[in-house]
């Protein structure tokens, strides 16, 4: 994949010494601490300021610029999703800093903001508004989104009447109707039946191509080879150095 042309304000992600701890309220994990610290699933448990907490990301440094497609690999609970959420701006670092230049689009949970009792149109509108589009911009894109979803007259019906596949189509169509400089994805999204998967794949690729930076967390190594040019491995909240995708095997073996 060729890197896209540079946009006016350069797109970039900079994380410096990023540490994220999740306080766990109402649970005293003290007695479990020693056991849990040794296993590979999840971050490190510890205590800060008297509350039990999990260190989800510890002292992470990351520098990405336009054209970078970063793949994230690692066990469950190694901090991949946390990193994506932190990059989306939802989490405040406990130490260090995150700086992102460019419009961020986080395709982490397609069902974000979907209201089953509302109609398809209303849901597209709501989702667009949450993603940062103005009412006018949503209206301008409505036809395109509606057509892409292929739901036709069903868009005027409440989403709860949809089948799971139809719901996924709607969510996908609405969520991918954004323009993003920085695209964050937790696993490559594949929804719908065989036909829809094909066009969905194309649409996603287009979005990825337009975006300056892609960060994709996945357990599928082949997928990462296909879409990414760099890779980083997370383990217990500690990140490896960003390496070229060609060295993925070495990284996995390490």
């Amino acid at each position: 994949m060729k890197p896209p042309p540079l946009k006016a304000p350069p797109v970039s992600i900079t994380c410096r010494d990023l540490t994220l701890r999740f306080p766990v309220y109402g649970v005293d994990a003290k007695s479990l601490k020693k056991h849990l610290a040794k296993i590979t699933v999840g971050g490190k448990l510890g205590r800060h300021h008297g509350a039990t907490d999990v260190t989800a990301i510890s002292h992470l440094n990351l520098e990405l610029k336009a054209g970078d497609r970063l793949g994230l690999i690692g066990h469950n609970g190694s901090g991949k999703t946390t990193l994506l959420r932190a990059l989306s701006g939802a989490y405040e670092p406990d130490e260090g800093s995150i700086e992102v230049q460019g419009h961020i689009a986080a395709l982490l949970d397609l069902n974000l903001g979907i209201d089953p009792t509302a109609t398809g149109y209303d849901n597209i509108r709501l989702r667009g508004r949450i993603a940062g589009l103005s009412s006018k911009e949503v209206d301008a894109r409505m036809d395109e989104i509606a057509e892409f979803s292929g739901l036709g007259p069903f868009l005027a019906m409440p989403v709860k009447t949809y089948s799971a596949g139809m719901q996924a189509r709607l969510a996908f169509a609405a969520a991918t109707a954004v323009e993003a400089d920085v695209l964050l994805m937790d696993e490559w999204i594949a929804v719908g039946d065989a036909d829809f998967q094909k066009i969905a794949h194309k649409r996603l690729l287009k979005l990825v191509e337009r975006a300056g930076i892609l960060v994709l967390a996945s357990h599928d190594v082949e997928l990462l080879r296909l879409y990414c040019n760099k890779v980083m491995r997370m383990e217990g909240g500690v990140a490896s150095a960003v390496t070229d995708i060609k060295k993925l095997d070495e990284l996995l073996a390490a």
Partner: peptide, 8 residues
């Protein structure tokens, strides 16, 4: 936001 900064 086209520029986002989050720090400790």
């Amino acid at each position: 936001a086209t520029h986002m900064l989050r720090t400790g």
